[in-house]
């Protein structure tokens, strides 16, 4: 049992990991074919896994409805929405139903799904305001630095603020755009690159841990 549950998966992980790592250095057509094959397998597995996902979705919402859990009414919309999308698509057979060139699926995607997604994305704007309010409360010297930088950058990006800053800075010979450019291209980039380097090194080490079977919590423990 331990052979099937531990050794074989670890060997597959090692083999695929080493081959994929090696394909970066081997530009041969066999290497490209291997990567393409892996992508195809991933798509096939993802296709079957989606069925599992769908079953999980329906089951969890069914339990919510049957147990009358708080907000169970929303769970009904999962089934209603699913049927509203799938039934017209199946009935039409992929042919246009609305006008000469629009399928029912296309109509739902364009006029319902895109609008709903846009709404969610638009909510971000409000959340950014509330987050910014929380971030700019000066509680420490670090928070003051953050506030000062944001005050210069945000205000300097709008025409009225730009005029105001340029008026204030006129005696120095610099414009606010110069200050913003320096802030964005020196301290901001330095901080971001520091984080990115840490992330890259951490990612490499984690990948090695997985390839060589040292990190194997993702497959359950021994």
């Amino acid at each position: 049992m331990i052979l099937i549950k531990k050794h074989i998966p670890l060997f597959i992980c090692f083999l695929v990991g080493v081959l994929t790592l090696g394909s970066y250095y081997v530009p041969n057509v066999h290497s490209e074919n291997y990567l393409e094959l892996m992508n195809k397998w991933e798509n096939i597995v993802a296709g079957f896994a989606f069925l599992l996902g769908l079953m999980s979705l329906f089951t969890s919402h069914f339990h919510k409805i049957s147990r009358k859990a708080p907000g169970w009414g929303y769970s009904l919309f999962v089934y209603v929405g699913f049927l509203l999308v799938v039934v017209p698509a199946v009935v039409s057979g992929g042919k246009p139903m609305i006008g000469p060139d629009m399928t029912s699926l296309g109509w739902i995607y364009r006029f319902v799904f895109t609008s709903l997604s846009g709404t969610m994305f638009a909510v971000l704007a409000f959340y950014i305001v509330s987050t910014a309010y929380r971030a700019f409360r000066i509680k420490s010297p670090q928070a003051f630095v953050l506030f000062a930088a944001a005050f210069i950058v945000i205000l300097g990006r709008v025409p009225l603020g730009q005029m105001m800053w340029d008026g204030l800075l006129s005696w120095t010979g610099y414009q606010v755009t110069d200050v913003i450019e320096w802030l964005m291209s020196v301290p901001v980039v330095a901080g971001r690159r520091g984080i990115m380097i840490g992330i890259a090194i951490g990612g490499i080490v984690t990948a090695l841990k997985i390839i060589f079977g040292i990190e194997r919590q993702y497959m359950g423990k021994d």
Binding site: A135, G198, I201, G202, Q217
Partner: peptide, 20 residues
């Protein structure tokens, strides 16, 4: 930055990979 401002604790960069 969004996590810094909205969350109590944020794992920065390689801390995420060190967590396990």
């Amino acid at each position: 930055p969004f996590f810094f401002t909205s969350c109590d604790y944020t794992l920065i960069g390689e801390e995420l990979y060190a967590a396990g």
